[in-house]
């Protein structure tokens, strides 16, 4: 991981002409955008617009057909997902993919353990890690559930555990796939608070979200995808007020 601290707004990830097709259908079609340091970019668009595919391409989960993705100036074509993750790009999944057989504590702890074999750790590093996890559990409201298996959590708790895992890492870019969908209003507030605090702490976020309250509450920038194409990429007001985009989004075509 590079030790230089990028300036606010400096592009961390640069995506150029990204392409991906599934059996002749263009899932991501010539998308070009930058993910800039300290900026929250929200991906919006109807279902099937290619938002999750876009995540899968930049995390290495899927191989792209064409285009270029650089992270901190380095081309990450063909790099394995775990290497991209270690370089500081981490993600959550829409279907969460928690480690269901493990406790809340183990889920969060394990998110910070990269090495294949256990390495000796100094007691101060161990204490620092424990404090970091404690803090994450408190902020996500999971402190009382630390010994509960992920499988046995309620829906909102599972969503927050998915967030807690990424919060405990030192990732610089978070790719969040519908982290707030299905949450109640109180949970929304907690979620927005977490996100604002971590963004203020230097994290860069790209988030897929449908809920307009969240979109408005958190976005510095909105990128609008439809049928794999990037139709708009700009400040929230101009994108949300575009009548053409609203028509596509709220689906009165056909």
């Amino acid at each position: 991981m590079s030790s230089t601290t990028p300036q606010l707004g400096e592009p961390l990830m640069q995506i150029r002409n990204l392409d991906k097709s599934f059996g002749g259908v263009k899932a991501v079609d010539n998308v070009t955008m930058d993910l800039r340091a300290g900026i929250v970019t929200t991906l919006v668009g109807p279902n099937g617009a290619g938002k999750t595919t876009f995540f899968n391409l930049i995390t290495g989960n899927l191989a792209r057909d064409g285009g270029e993705v650089t992270w901190l100036g380095r081309d990450i074509a063909g790099i394995k997902p775990h290497r991209i993750a270690r370089a500081g790009v981490m993600r959550t999944y829409q279907d969460l993919r928690l480690f269901d057989g493990m406790t809340v504590w183990e889920n969060v702890l394990n998110a910070t353990e990269y090495g294949a074999l256990p390495l000796p750790m100094s007691s101060s590093a161990r204490a620092e890690r424990r404090d970091r996890i404690e803090r994450v559990l408190e902020r996500t409201g999971l402190a009382d559930k630390r010994d509960t298996r992920a499988l046995d959590l309620a829906y909102a708790e599972r969503k927050f555990l998915s967030m807690a895992r990424i919060m405990a890492t030192r990732a610089r870019l978070w790719l969040l796939d519908e982290p707030a969908s299905g949450l109640d209003p109180n949970s929304y507030e907690r979620f927005l608070t977490i996100l604002r605090e971590d963004v203020a702490g230097g994290v860069t976020v790209c988030i897929i979200e449908h809920n307009l309250d969240i979109v408005i509450g958190i976005s510095d920038r909105i990128a609008f995808l439809d049928r794999g194409k990037l139709l708009a990429d700009g400040d929230p007001q101009s994108v949300l007020n575009d009548p053409e985009l609203a028509r596509i989004y709220f689906g009165d075509r056909e």
């Binding site: 995390t59 997902p81 993919r97 928690l98 493990m102 394990n110 353990e113 990269y114 890492t169």
Partner: peptide, 28 residues
């Protein structure tokens, strides 16, 4: 009981999520 065991269980529960948190799944 070490991080190795947690990595094994993480892989068992979700291979893709384990990789997304930096684990070299084939190596483990």
């Amino acid at each position: 009981r070490s991080s190795f065991g947690r990595n094994l269980r993480a892989i068992r529960d979700s291979e893709s999520a384990a990789a997304s948190f930096g684990k070299n799944v084939p190596m483990i």
